[in-house]
């Protein structure tokens, strides 16, 4: 299968229900709540404003990995990153290095949450905001 990208295809249809974040925590990490999601829905311009959805861009040369001082976060062969948990020193430099604030932080584990591009968030979006695509698409994705 071709490399899959997680894309925000209909940002303006987002209703801010966080269903995607709950899906990621539940389906990928077996956790109740939304705290272990690898993506984030942000409200901006006040809570009633539009929403902005931050998903991993699957960078080929990821800034987050470059910022990691211990080699815990490394580029994956087809873009994106992998985490070696035992090397992580919880410094948070990776999250700060992601300019689009897509890389999320697990407050309980004190570690980043790399996206695995499984598409569970897409499956549980009620308004077709997210899609798995073969290429990154569009210029208004976040």
């Amino acid at each position: 299968m071709a490399v899959q990208y997680l894309n925000v295809v209909n940002r303006d249809q987002c209703i801010g229900c966080f269903s995607c974040m709950y899906a990621c925590s539940r389906m990928v990490r077996n956790a109740g709540g939304s705290g272990k999601a690898a993506l984030r829905v942000k409200g901006y311009a006040g809570v009633e404003g539009a929403f902005s959805i931050r998903v991993c861009a699957r960078c080929e040369d990821p800034d987050c990995a470059k910022a990691c001082p211990t080699g815990a976060l490394t580029p994956a062969p087809n873009g994106g990153v992998r985490l070696k948990k035992d090397l992580c020193i919880s410094c948070g430099a990776c999250v700060k290095a992601c300019a689009i604030s897509a890389l999320q932080w697990d407050e309980e584990e004190r570690q980043p949450i790399p996206c695995i591009f499984c598409g569970q968030c897409v499956k549980y979006c009620p308004n077709d905001v997210l899609a798995m695509t073969e290429k990154p698409e569009g210029e208004d994705r976040r």
Binding site: I15, G16, C17, S34, E48, P126
Partner: peptide
């Protein structure tokens, strides 16, 4: 349309 947290209805 907006939604309460964890309501897919909105």
């Amino acid at each position: 349309h907006t939604a309460c947290a964890h309501c897919q209805c909105g």
